[in-house]
């Protein structure tokens, strides 16, 4: 009887996973503050510069540029939509938050791609890396994004940088997965042909694998942009500026009108980016 009691007691004792995570986070903060601050510095620099670049033009000039770009990339119908959509945001006086959002999204996407695509390439070539990254990616994609707002906050403090980091973590999985998938799907006979003509691994990667994986990688980039946008409001909770801020504020003061206007801004920028950089 005593033994059964012992077992029961052991089972019902709470495993202190929460404590372990806290210890780990604290350890990282105490020992790696240098590199973390450096990283935060780079992110901040990128966001600021993108924002400066975007606000260099008068809003109407900016809208014109985007409309022309849409026309060149796709068709004139899209360029009309882009002009009207962005014009509406300007009219609703959401232009400055829009640019802030755009700058942090561009930064998030650029960072996610710089890290994600090479990881996807390595993952496609190494079974070990594939096995290690698979559960991590599942974890990152399924855990509620609110949960890693806390460590982001602890590492990088309140503000846009934390928002960008949380966004990167949330949006990096598709470029990794789709780069991996694209390379995996390249026909083995093509790689064999490369080897047969004496190509080395770099030539096979650049001339055969990446061009073959391109459609899939482009889809990964598109997914990355969309996921980044879906983080706009959540990132605002840890102080990121942009369109998320008015949405949050409207939630606190129950201002339906303000919330709707800001939300509309997010929808418009999402549709514009998706239609312009997505595949038909």
């Amino acid at each position: 009887m005593i033994k059964v009691n012992n077992v029961l007691q052991l089972i019902s004792t709470k495993i202190p996973i929460g404590n372990w995570v806290e210890v780990l986070v604290n350890f990282l903060i105490n020992n790696f503050s240098g590199p973390l601050e450096g990283f935060a510095g780079i992110i901040e620099w990128m966001v600021n510069n993108f924002e400066a670049l975007l606000s260099y033009f008068h809003p109407l000039v900016f809208i014109l540029i985007f409309a022309i770009l849409a026309w060149r990339l796709k068709n004139y119908k899209l360029s009309i939509f882009v002009a009207l959509g962005l014009g509406l945001v300007f009219n609703l006086q959401m232009w400055d938050p829009l640019l802030t959002t755009l700058a942090s999204i561009i930064t998030s996407v650029v960072v996610a791609l710089i890290i994600g695509i090479p990881i996807g390439i390595i993952k496609a070539h190494s079974i070990t890396v594939d096995l290690i990254t698979r559960p991590i990616l599942d974890f990152m994609q399924t855990i509620p994004p609110f949960v890693y707002l806390i460590p982001a906050l602890m590492f990088f403090g309140l503000g846009t940088v934390s928002g960008v980091i949380a966004t990167v973590v949330f949006a990096i999985a598709p470029p990794i997965r789709l780069t991996y998938l694209g390379i995996q799907q390249v026909d083995d006979e093509l790689k064999e042909a490369g080897h047969a003509f004496g190509a080395n691994w770099w030539e096979i990667l650049m001339k055969i694998e990446l061009p073959g994986a391109m459609p899939s990688i482009m889809m990964g980039i598109n997914q990355c942009i969309m996921l980044s946008l879906s983080m706009v409001v959540i990132a605002a909770m840890i102080g990121a500026g942009g369109l998320g801020k008015p949405v949050l504020r409207s939630l606190n003061v129950v201002d339906i009108g303000l919330g709707f206007e800001a939300g509309l801004g997010v929808v418009i920028i999402a549709m514009v980016l998706d239609r312009m950089f997505g595949r038909e």
Binding site: E189, F197, G198, E203, K207, I208, P211, G212
Partner: peptide
């Protein structure tokens, strides 16, 4: 060696000429 494959193994994103150049490019 020059090698010819059962399912042709041509690079879909390259033109006929670019495909034919592949081996020379590696050289």
């Amino acid at each position: 060696f020059g090698m010819v494959f059962q399912n042709f193994a041509l690079l879909p994103h390259r033109t006929v000429l670019e495909n034919a150049m592949f081996g020379l490019e590696i050289q």
